[in-house]
């Protein structure tokens, strides 16, 4: 058992997979010599050399095109899109090419690739470097969508993503990079599509993802002091979506609160809420409550950004509304 930061876990996870499989290569802007702008890929160039770890120009389309072309011809590329906001300049590759090609070719083309990206707010970077865009990816058939909340899950889910035969968008949360956590020794490999229950409580089910998981846990602590016991479920991946873990929890708590960093409209909680409303309505004893960022771009100033993003106190308030 070792204590690793979330950022060190990223480098360790990439190294674990590159050591295991020679067809794994890693490309992106500033990922090699500079070790990544978030210092999450330090040492990989030195360890694996310039034929397997490649710095690219600022050309997001070219990066993802290389990943796709390499994946369709027998390699398992890992590509970095530095900030997830930058997916927008390469969305044709993601949404039209990578996501659709297997289907359009009737299964002729397999695309085992991972695109990892720094996602989410809390860093005071302003609206073009802070978005939480995992819900964009979730809306597109053909993409798997993963977002870990702990250093250990970075390791286990990243290994699963690299070994998965389908394209995976791996959203690392920027505000979690310095988070420390226990990581077991040896190879770590998880299964995509399995949620983790982070806390058990009988009164309400709070479902969260990535940086919203520690906030949901903080809210649960506060609620416990008021006599309300919350279950906190960390979804870990949006596609595949572990609906049954959520449904099973609601069957005992009767209340669902989702905590999304996405702007309000079409966040992942909307999909989850609609599924639960359609399939588990009679397990509910109160309204489903979605705690989200309001439908605004994220502002830069710390006070404004904190006010916009879901906080522990807003989650507590959401739980109270569900229980009222």
């Amino acid at each position: 058992m070792a204590e690793l930061t979330y950022r060190d876990a990223v480098a360790a996870a990439i190294a674990q997979e590159m050591e295991r499989d020679e067809s794994v290569v890693f490309i992106g802007e500033d990922v090699g010599a500079a070790g990544g702008v978030f210092k999450a890929t330090v040492g990989l160039l030195e360890k694996f050399g310039p034929t397997r770890v490649l710095d690219t120009p600022i050309s997001e389309q070219a990066i993802l095109g290389v990943a796709m072309g390499a994946a369709m011809t027998g390699m398992r590329p890992i590509a970095e899109i530095m900030f997830s906001d930058f997916f927008a300049v390469s969305w044709d590759l993601v949404a039209n090419e990578i996501a659709k090609t297997r289907y359009m070719t009737n299964g002729q083309v397999t695309l085992p690739l991972v695109i990892r990206s720094g996602n989410g707010g809390g860093s005071r970077f302003g609206a073009q470097h802070s978005q939480s865009v995992e819900n964009w990816a979730m809306a597109i058939p053909g993409l798997k969508v993963v977002a870990p909340s702990t250093p250990r899950d970075v390791m286990g889910l990243f290994a699963a993503a690299v070994r998965d035969p389908d394209p995976v968008l791996f959203f690392e949360h920027k505000s979690l990079y310095s988070l420390k956590g226990e990581v077991e020794d040896g190879e770590i490999l998880d299964e995509l599509g399995k949620a983790a229950t982070r806390r058990e409580g009988k009164d309400v089910t709070i479902v969260a993802l990535a940086a919203m998981v520690p906030r949901a846990l903080a809210a649960a602590e506060q609620l416990a002091s008021e006599g309300v016991e919350a279950t906190v479920i960390d979804l870990r991946s949006l596609v595949p979506l572990d609906v049954s873990a959520v449904a099973a929890s609601i069957a005992s708590t009767g209340h669902l609160v989702t905590v999304e960093e996405n702007p309000r409209l079409c966040g992942w909680g909307a999909e989850l809420s609609s599924i639960i409303a359609e399939e588990n309505l009679f397990d509910l004893d109160g309204p489903i409550v979605r705690v989200t960022t309001p439908h605004v771009p994220l502002p830069a100033a710390d006070t404004l950004e904190d006010a916009a993003m879901p906080s522990a106190s807003r989650i507590v308030e959401g739980v109270r509304r569900s229980l009222a």
Binding site: Q61, G69, N96
Partner: peptide, 11 residues
């Protein structure tokens, strides 16, 4: 896009 994908196959 396919010019960039051809690069990937060449790579």
């Amino acid at each position: 896009a396919h010019l960039t994908i051809a690069n990937g196959a060449a790579f």
